[in-house]
Design a protein around this nucleic acid. Structure first.
Lengths: 233, 233
DNA sequence: GCCCGTTAAGTGATTAGATCACTTGATATG
DNA sequence: CATATCAAGTGATCTAATCACTTAACGGGC
């Protein structure tokens, strides 16, 4: 299964160029040699070189300007090349992800309770009604609706940056979603805890909303942790 | 100055393909048509198509396996294509970003205080010593060192997901960094507040660390907000 | 003297078809 | 039944030329 992918020519090229930029002490904004010169220096043809350049461009390492030149990107220091042999998310990472949510989401629930208005609250209620209908349905659908509740709550907090962060945390790989489903499928409790959070938000009780969201996520995390160490048959 | 870069053919291709993958309901792991077929369908030649594919690969949207095929990446949903014409961050966004940091970083300071060990604390001290040397030096260097302090603190919290989030929040485009510098250049206060936070972390006082980090970030945010509404001449 | 259109050199973008290298599943072999 | 072989399909690379854009120098016109 976990075959090691052999690095291709342009793979190596990408790494070599990134290394040379850094080792060469080039600063953001500096101009690189032309494509013709680079392809000669690295002894590859233009298309191959350009594939490597496109990767560096996509990761923010460089910027290619038609007719002008190739320039070192602003955040060259932080560029990380995607590794094709990246392992799937393991249990430890899953716990860290849930730990991150424990930190971030409770304050958002509090903020939502403070500023949520009528129409927005109604939308949140609809999400839970939808979840109620799925209580005896498909696992996948229920899980999706549950995630929607967390997304919607984060949005109500009114900070788009935080909303995007939560959104990305909830958008996990399909395999991990299934892992969560298998590890934590206590549908009724999940639903009821969401209800309790919503009630606090509707009541405008920021402290209660925060605490209930925290308790809820800690619950989830605890169950996942237990199942990981003592997996069901 | 802010010229609009005309989208190139492969630029448009990259977006079109990403759109088609998503609109087509393709899931992670699904296989895409071959390069030959794709180049015909989009009426471009192989090298051009491959440049677009390499960008999608570098952003994690797809995975290319030699001899096998092209597959939809695990986090296709999260993929964001770098936009060369990205508009500069405006004041409102800057405040939201600082607001997000107010929520996330204080708990991390508390976590750092609870689990930080000797060597890690020494490294954090060195960062502040470095900052002290820059107190009368270049603005840019001081700012960079200050950001390093926040990064390092986030790392000490021991949750890699949260660390990455803070890291990305601090990695703002050069233009915005300058904006912050101009809006908030009270070097001494910044430094002293960092010192106070570090002391709490070293003492293992989680509550104090959290509260000082929060006060510090609220300070920064308040100053930025005031300058935005009442800019210095 | 200064402004602005023109121009030419340099650079990235794209084209075309052929060939090489690798994976995978079917087939044959023991 | 397991293993080895093979062929079809696919990505990777090569080749060399042309097109499109940017930039800065140049020169005429005011």
């Amino acid at each position: 299964m976990s075959e090691v992918v052999r690095p291709t020519l342009s793979d190596a090229l990408t790494e070599r160029m990134l290394e040379l930029i850094r080792a060469g002490g080039l600063r953001p904004g500096d101009r690189l040699p032309s494509t013709r010169e680079l392809s000669q220096r690295f002894a590859v043809t233009t298309p191959t070189l350009r594939e490597a350049l496109r990767r560096l461009e996509a990761t923010g390492a460089i910027e290619m300007r038609h007719g002008s030149g190739i320039y070192v990107g602003a955040d060259i220091e932080r560029v990380v090349l995607p590794n094709p042999n990246m392992r799937e998310m393991d249990g430890e990472q899953l716990l860290e992800l849930l730990g991150a949510r424990v930190v971030i989401e409770p304050p958002l629930a509090a903020m939502a309770a403070q500023r949520a208005a009528g129409a927005e609250l109604a939308a949140l209620e609809r999400v839970l009604d939808e979840a109620a209908r799925h209580l005896r349905g498909e696992d996948a659908e229920l899980h999706e609706t549950n995630m929607t509740f967390h997304r919607a709550t984060a949005r109500l907090a009114g900070n788009s940056v935080l909303h995007e962060i939560v959104d990305s945390l909830l958008t996990v790989h399909g395999a991990e979603q299934r892992a969560i489903l298998q590890l934590f499928d206590d549908r009724r409790r999940d639903y009821e805890e969401h209800r309790a959070i919503l009630e606090a938000i509707v009541a405008g009780d920021a402290a209660a909303a925060e605490e209930r969201m925290r308790a809820h996520l800690v619950d989830v995390r605890t169950v996942v942790e237990q199942r990981l160490h003592n997996p069901p048959k």
